[in-house]
Nucleic acid binder design. Structure first.
Lengths: 251, 251
DNA sequence: AAACGGATTTGATCTGGATTAGGTTCCGCA
DNA sequence: TGCGGAACCTAATCCAGATCAAATCCGTTT
């Protein structure tokens, strides 16, 4: 099977495969088959829509670089951000098996996307069960994060909410090699952050300032440093269990 | 393969298989294999814990009768209900592939549960890929519901939130044959409902009374009747798309 | 039939975060 | 070098829903 490679010589889909293997076991053939998935690379700029609520997509979007986010719009025009995605993420795996999209996916920054035909994914899951299971695990972890967001937005006050999400981003970006020592570039505006935690941008701004004054974080434009991780974790009621980074059973 | 049957002669796991087949294609052998899953039936009374946050469960709970719910407790003692489950639901499929549970599962009413060994499920998913895909689809729909709950709790006001969840329950219970004409027995207390929509029970009570006064609903103890479905759907900003009941691609 | 306890209901008061209405800073571009 | 637009920041006021406190209802136990 031919494997498409990037100018650097590594298969373009390799980071995605590596990511799946952190939580599921794949053999050489599974890996090969994943790398041989057909796809079409497209460049998209910040704000570009990848999928819209109600679409019947023929492709799943795999993020190669940049950031994307999922969101829904309520009847009265409010927006709720549902998830943040980084390079290597299959942003919308559900499109491979559910006919109609129930939310929007939009680029947060400029980036590149590999569009994989949905049929290719569902066919591969049937042909190579270990791949199916790996993708299923990915969906399970996604689910777990949604649950935590329900809690965050449903039962935590503004300060706790914001600390929590900043902790989550720190861990996830670090895991992806995009942060170090709790220091990272927040890929979103305060308004988008507000829509992720169910607050107004005005209030988010206030809370961020207060967190700065308390020396919990420091900021320089979009750059965030969590100055006191332990205290931040406490204030944000953050427990990384829901990210399911621990090695899975038997591994 | 031996298939366990209930006193009525029907396989005990049959409702679960039927439920999976509404969204995924299974052949006779897949069906057989699912019905032949090993399990242990246990009776549990309202309030009984099936899984606790942090557990390393060896089984997945399949609800045979009654209602169950998932929830998390925050650092300051708040509770957020994450999901409601009815008979036929695999309440915690994630335990088959993720080592540590990230939330609690508790019975809402008395009921019966089939505990299926997690290894049996993961092994079956590898052995019969169509079963793996069917379970994956189940997880995808779960995810979609979580996303809608994030929106509900993050961006809707109390009145809209409560109408929305009452619409969701109506549809899901009707789909399961437990409601008819938008009339059903709400399986939870107002306090539990409050914890599902991120409000206090005091405020939930007030809103329910107002909805009654407006003739949107009527109540008699736990029995709910949605008197004006169209208006209720509008007020609750409810669009059933996220439940993914429509026939999947090609079906 | 009295006593008990969980669930529901109601009222009074308080407050966290929304809303409104600005301002400032920064940057790309003519 | 100046202009336009997006992001960021701040202050003043308002209100939806929280909190606190008590009744009341109803099924169950004694």
């Amino acid at each position: 099977m031919p494997v498409h490679t990037s100018p650097t010589g590594e298969a373009i889909l390799a980071p995605m495969v590596r990511k799946l293997e952190r939580r599921a076991r794949l053999d050489a053939q599974d890996r090969e088959a994943l790398l041989a998935l057909p796809y079409q690379v497209r460049r998209a700029s910040a704000g570009a829509h990848l999928i819209r609520d109600g679409d019947r997509p023929e492709h799943c979007a795999l993020l190669l670089s940049g950031f994307a986010f999922r969101h829904k719009i309520t009847g009265d025009g409010g927006r709720q951000v549902l998830a943040l995605h980084l390079a290597g993420d299959f942003v919308d795996l559900q499109n491979s098996l559910l006919a109609v999209s129930d939310h929007n996916v939009q680029m947060l920054t400029d980036g590149e996307i590999a569009f994989v035909p949905r049929d290719a994914i569902s066919a591969l899951a049937l042909e190579r069960p270990a791949v199916g299971v790996a993708l299923w695990v990915d969906t399970l972890v996604d689910s777990s994060i949604f649950r935590e967001w329900v809690v965050n937005v449903g039962r935590r006050d503004a300060r706790t909410r914001i600390c929590h999400i900043l902790c989550e981003f720190s861990m996830r970006l670090e895991e992806a090699g995009l942060a170090k020592n709790h220091r990272y570039e927040l890929p979103m505006t305060q308004e988008q952050l507000a829509d992720a935690v169910g607050l107004t941008s005005v209030h988010v701004n206030r809370v961020l300032r207060q967190l700065g004054e308390e020396a919990l974080i420091s900021r320089n434009k979009r750059a965030i440093v969590i100055e006191d991780w332990n205290r931040m974790r406490d204030v944000g009621d953050f427990n990384a269990r829901y990210l399911h980074y621990a090695t899975p059973r038997g591994a």
